[in-house]
């Protein structure tokens, strides 16, 4: 744990407290949901904010690292391209002959604001007002 924190029943700051997770204690990472992480600390399991554990995660990809946790939906979309296409390397980019014709085609793919407005509304996407984050 990066900080003293409280394990909560649900991934929400108003959810009931389950137990305390003291700073510097070692915990087991179970599941991530949004910016919350379910952890096991001592005998208790519960949710803490991702930032409470994030700084303690190894940068490498050892078991239990943050980056190795499944998002809970893995396995469904991991299609390996079966086509005859190949990769795109740095050398390919450096050796590429510009294709201006393809750029014209890309520009024709552009959609209008009204198209995207209809698309957003069909998907019931609700716009939010949000400021940029301070780093």
């Amino acid at each position: 744990m990066k900080t003293d924190d409280t394990l909560r029943m649900e991934p929400s700051p108003t959810s009931a407290a389950v137990a305390a997770a003291p700073k510097n204690s070692r915990v087991e990472l179970l599941e991530r949901k949004g910016f919350w992480m379910k952890i096991k600390s001592g005998g208790a399991a519960g949710w803490v904010k991702l930032t409470a554990v994030a700084a303690d995660a190894p940068a490498s990809q050892g078991a239990g690292s943050l980056s190795n946790l499944a998002s809970g939906r893995s396995g469904t979309g991991n299609i390996v391209s079966a086509s005859g296409t190949r990769g795109l390397s740095e050398a390919d980019l450096r050796a590429a002959r510009p294709d201006a014709e393809a750029v014209k085609q890309v520009k024709k793919l552009a959609v209008s604001s009204s198209d995207s407005a209809q698309f957003s509304s069909e998907g019931r996407l609700q716009a939010r007002k949000l400021a940029y984050l301070k780093r």
Binding site: F35, K49, A54, A55, P58, A59, L66, S67, K134, R135
Partner: peptide, 16 residues
């Protein structure tokens, strides 16, 4: 892994 750490660290309440 570094990008995950950075984005978790900057996420504020409205983003969460």
């Amino acid at each position: 892994a570094d990008r995950i750490r950075e984005v978790s660290a900057v996420a504020n309440e409205p983003i969460i």
